[in-house]
Design a protein around this nucleic acid. Structure first.
Lengths: 138, 138
DNA sequence: TTAGATATCTCCAGAGACTATAGATTTGGA
DNA sequence: TCCAAATCTATAGTCTCTGGAGATATCTAA
């Protein structure tokens, strides 16, 4: 039996976050000690590792809730789980695309500025003021 | 003189968001009509466009507040503005790197799954349960 | 001029995913 | 046995908005 602190150390999920996940229904309400403290077992550790992993991958709580619900019906076909992951892949690619545009623009802005002239002539400030200086719309 | 709605249409920033920016001190408190409605001028439009642009680039409110403060002292050297943008560029690159790892991993997960077998054998679910299946740590 | 439609006002609550605090209780080790 | 550390609950705060309620202002058309 693990305390909430043990669980935290083993998974890298902070203690208040574990309680938060319980509240959000991602973790079942834990058994309690005589003194009302949460006590966990191996399967709770696995579940929390699953959640942690999915969060690291950027899935949101509701997607994780769906995946957990799916994983509790192991004999159904897995099309929905596949769809959730594939949707997420699309959104990750989308985000990467957007960030790359930002990267280009910031590069351009920063490279024009040597940090050593007056604000009124600073490309950083001017770029932010005047969208027309951008290479592409965003 | 523009109403808050005009300003919103011209900048693409929603009305409650404009009021929020005022509350956060990014926009000066607007002049008011006789009936207490906000009235804006050209320079407010420019300021809001600046904010919008900076937010689109992913700068947070406090960074924007700093940039605005800097831009109000046009004769100082611009080193700080440069630093803010350069810092941000670093963090954008960092984010891109992380998302690319996710992309790889999600690709791997999704490509192993044809959406057509039982959950208990689904690579999506198994990958999330078992970190050991990952190519790299995260 | 007046009615009615639209826009605006303030204040407050909620979203999402935590994080932190306060004050009380329990637990584990010397 | 005693004390420090961990845990408990409940509540509030973070950040950047977004939406609603109910009251007031403004604009347009008749």
């Amino acid at each position: 039996m693990l305390s909430i602190g043990d669980l935290s150390k083993r998974t890298g999920v902070k203690v208040p976050t574990i309680r938060y996940y319980e509240q959000m229904g991602l973790l079942a309400a834990a058994e309690r000690s005589e003194g009302n403290q949460r006590r966990y077992e191996r399967h709770d550790l696995e579940r929390l590792a699953f959640i942690r992993h999915a969060r690291d991958l950027g899935l949101d709580i509701s997607a994780i809730r769906e995946l957990i619900a799916l994983s509790e019906h192991p004999h159904q076909p897995c099309g929905n789980a596949d769809r959730i992951a594939a949707d997420h892949l699309r959104s990750v690619r989308d985000k990467i695309g957007k960030l790359k545009k930002l990267e280009q623009e910031l590069e351009r802005i920063v490279s024009h500025c040597d940090g050593d002239h007056a604000i009124e002539d600073c490309y950083v400030i001017r770029s932010l003021s005047d969208h027309g200086l951008c290479d592409h719309e965003h």
